[in-house]
Amino acid sequence: MRILVTGATGFLGGAAALALAQAGHEVIATGRDPLRGAALEAQGLTFLAADLRGDPAPLVRPVDAVLHCAARSTLWGRWPDFYADNVQVSARLAQACARSGVRLVHVSTPSVYNATGLTRRVPESIPVGPRFDSLYARSKYLAELEVRAALPDAAILRPRGLYGPGDTSLMPRLVRALRSGRLPRLTRQEVHTELTHVGNAVHAARLALEQPAAGLFNVTDGVTVPIWATLDRLADRLGTPRPARVVPARWVEGAATLLEAAYRLRPGTPEPPITASAVRLLTRPMTLDLTRARERLGYAPLIHPAEGLAEVLAGLL
């Protein structure tokens, strides 16, 4: 199969492009980083530097399927940028796939569930919106609507908390927070959540490409992870103090909200040292129902979080 992978110079897209090529598919990788693109070419992939805000039709016409990993994936930013990069790009790409009869697997996020109040075995069928807890979540949900309207048979994956080799977001953020020495313990009780090793996310994407099934699919490692015990292990590995000073999460979330408001008064400023969304990720449990992915895609996690997190910790030093 000839597959276009967008966002291939990013974390998930890069891992997916390489894995699909190793599985025997012909992969065309796109992205904005020419250095990472050159690294992909050195491993035998075809790389095209592309700005997806333009017309995607020339990229889509020669392929059999598209894996859309490209996105503005951050907890901080301006709505016009989120809308342009996540909503409009996804809409145009889905429309181009529909016109060319090309299979589309679109990567979204379970962040769309965050404002629903449901935290255990969250199914894809739960109504979401119109309120979201971040601009990112709102933009990704609107992108899903555009994809489903243009291409009802598209597969939309919602992997939670991506981590693993090459991670540029989750673990690096936690490492910076621990090394700063300013991360308090936000709860006296443990918080259990689910994460997704990049290898498991790639596995789900490959299944969705090779044996098409339409609709929404939650994706995780399938096993809960204790957030604060994991942070303690991470601190021990880094040789930094474990978070010990307990500060109520509602105080920190309130302060982060005020800080965000102050930062937004100065357009172009970098991300605040702490955001309300980041606080919620550390203090609110969530597990996802994987029934649909298991039954319709045949998905079963290949990598257990004990193995995946041990791999990440081993690679830190």
Rank of each mutant, 00 (worst) to 15 (best):
I227K: 00
G254N: 07
Q22F: 03
T220V: 13
R266I: 15
L231G: 05
Q211M: 05
P58F: 04
A49C: 13
P243W: 11
A314C: 15
G7K: 01
Q88N: 10
L216S: 05
V102R: 08
S111C: 03
G101P: 10
F217D: 07
P56V: 11
R176F: 12
V279W: 02
L209K: 00
I3M: 07
Q88L: 15
W228K: 01
R173S: 15
R173P: 00
D55E: 14
Q189D: 15
Y163D: 13
A70S: 06
A71G: 12
M286C: 08
L297R: 02
E194W: 01
M171Q: 07
S180E: 11
V105M: 03
V87C: 01
G129D: 07
A50P: 05
F132G: 06
S277N: 11
V5L: 09
G315F: 01
A154R: 00
E253Y: 05
V107N: 05
L183A: 01
A201M: 02
D33G: 02
Q211A: 15
T275Y: 02
I274K: 00
Y263I: 14
G254C: 09
P152V: 06
L317F: 11
T287P: 08
G117K: 00
L186A: 01
Y141A: 00
V225M: 11
M171L: 14
L195G: 08
R284D: 13
T283V: 14
D64V: 02
D153N: 09
R32D: 11
T269R: 15
R242M: 13
S139Q: 04
L259P: 06
R131I: 13
A23L: 06
D221N: 11
A229D: 10
R158M: 11
L265I: 15
V223K: 10
T116L: 07
T291N: 02
R237M: 12
L216F: 08
Y136M: 06
A84N: 05
V60L: 13
H304V: 14
A155K: 01
